[in-house]
Amino acid sequence: MAQHRTRLVVDFCVRALCLLATLLALLPLVSVLGYVVVRGAGGLSWAFLTELPKPLGEAGGGMANAIQGTLRLVLIAALLAIPAGVLSGVYLAEFKHTRFAKLARFCADVMSGIPSITVGLFVYGLVVTATRHFSALAGGLSLGFLMLPSVARTTEEFVKLVPESLREAALGLGASAWRTTLWVLLRTAAPGIAVGIMLAVARVAGETAPLLFTAFNNRFWSESVNEPTASLPVAIYTYAVSPYDEWHRQAWAAALVLILVVLLLNLSARLVVGRKVRL
């Protein structure tokens, strides 16, 4: 009997410890979000969203160029990674047993684990040394490379989830195989793929390391994709490591903007999953 009680006590303790670990892990999340909201709200204003940075020493100014830059970089990345990722995902799902699909799937998995900074180095060697200047194009390219494997893998997963009966119905009606894939399978899987894309965008929107030596930074508007461009993550980094209080305030405000975008994407992706996609 005593032994039975010990076992129950051990069971209770382990379960309590596991719960404790979960709560402990959420502490930093609460703290980060709390500080970003409280400190960031102070620096956030209309001017912050619409004006260029002021020279050091002058109060005010904003980060409109960094916001524009981040939008531009993410747009370039998305234009590159979404078509390529979706199509390669379709290949991985439709020809999943071929040896080449296995290789490509494996490479995608490995690629999603390599450090983002090495992708920056790669694009530096590929684009920046060739064109001899930093550019939004190079930055967007490196973000696109980071997006590609995750878009491909989520597309694959969701295409595989489409019931076989839908494919059979389409083929039975006389559709050719490729039309069935594009018009039936891909359309059915679209909400899930959209979720994957949103999460991938949320992830690359906050990437800093690969931008340091591809998109670089810019205190002004960048006129074209061939110029160095500012971005929110790089701006947060430069302002946070500076010794000026005013810049720290702006870094918190920029962090608030960035976090809001990322959270919004994550939450809406979550809602779409809850509503439309049956997993």
Partner: peptide
Amino acid sequence: VELLAAVPSVVYGLW
């Protein structure tokens, strides 16, 4: 817990 992974690295640096 997964949101912890969504917070950008540079925001962790700032915090």
